[in-house]
């Protein structure tokens, strides 16, 4: 086999990518990196203004992108987004299931409706988008890459995020199950598991958690305590890992969960 150069490994030119929740935070950073690598990016978000902002920035940098309003938990929206991507870019090669919510609340105050909502967006949404996208990938017969956003919270509880913990634990095993079943179609499924990352979303969570009666000490422990590298991560730290998984450098890796947590799970 001819060995591709390093530049070739990370070149995604001609590829079409879907990023759910691409309007802000980690999703936005992922869109920027995939676009920088040459991919055309379909930015799906429930907040159309946010998705449009990501698209504008990509276009400013000379990349190709399109925004689409979509609920990550909806099967109908998954079909709509996949169809729009094929129409806009000609192919779907990469799906990043990034959209997610993480309300902080003590377990005894979690209502059924909240539990359902978290599982629906974080876990069922990943299933629905993966299934719909994989259908298009299988039809095209060229394989593909699916990257799910897991979390250290899917491996280790930190308190006050029970539905989130359950949803991300589910995403981890869903990733492995999909990887096993989709391997014959050369569709590789992996996950990136972030630790504490500074995003607009985590700031909102902090504000709502304070309102819900959690103390600053509890919050600080949730976010930056116990990290061996002694800093919270940036959205781009996660985007770099997603770029790696989407690239040819990870062509023999499937069903893997890549932790990007500054060593948090070691402590």
């Amino acid at each position: 086999m001819t060995t591709p150069s390093i530049a070739e490994l990370f070149d995604l030119s001609g590829k079409g990518a879907i990023v759910t929740g691409g309007g802000m935070g980690i999703g936005q950073a992922i869109c920027y990196r995939l676009s920088e690598a040459g991919a055309s990016v379909m930015v799906a978000d429930v907040n159309m203004d946010a998705a449009n902002q990501t698209v504008d920035e990509i276009k400013n940098r000379g990349g190709k992108a399109q925004a689409i309003e979509a609920n990550a938990a909806s099967a109908a929206d998954a079909k709509k987004v996949v169809a729009a991507t094929v129409e806009a870019f000609g192919s779907i090669d990469i799906l990043v299931n990034n959209a997610g919510i993480y309300p902080l609340l003590p377990v005894m105050r979690v209502e059924e409706a909240l539990f359902d909502k978290v599982i629906s967006v974080n876990l069922k949404g990943s299933f629905l988008f993966a299934q719909t996208t994989a259908e298009a990938m299988i039809n095209a017969g060229k394989g593909g890459k699916i990257i799910n956003l897991a979390s250290v919270d899917g491996l280790h509880p930190n308190g006050n995020a029970t539905p989130y913990n359950a949803s991300k634990g589910g995403v981890i095993m869903l990733t492995k199950a999909l990887a096993l079943e989709l391997a014959p179609h050369k569709i590789l499924v992996n996950a990136v598991a972030p630790g504490s990352i500074m995003t607009p979303g985590t700031k909102n969570v902090a504000a709502s958690a304070l309102e819900a009666g959690l103390t600053i000490e509890q919050l600080s422990k949730s976010f930056t305590g116990r990290i061996p590298l002694e800093r919270a991560g940036q959205p781009d730290d996660i985007a770099r890992a997603v770029l790696f998984m989407a690239s040819a450098a990870a062509d023999y890796t499937t069903g893997d969960i890549l932790l990007v947590d500054g060593g948090y799970l070691l402590s």
């Binding site: 991560g233 770099r240 060593g263």
Partner: peptide, 16 residues
């Protein structure tokens, strides 16, 4: 530098 926030991690490269 793409892995500057990763430590203590084991990446499996096994074709599944």
């Amino acid at each position: 530098a793409a892995a500057n926030y990763i430590t203590g991690e084991i990446i499996v490269v096994d074709g599944g």
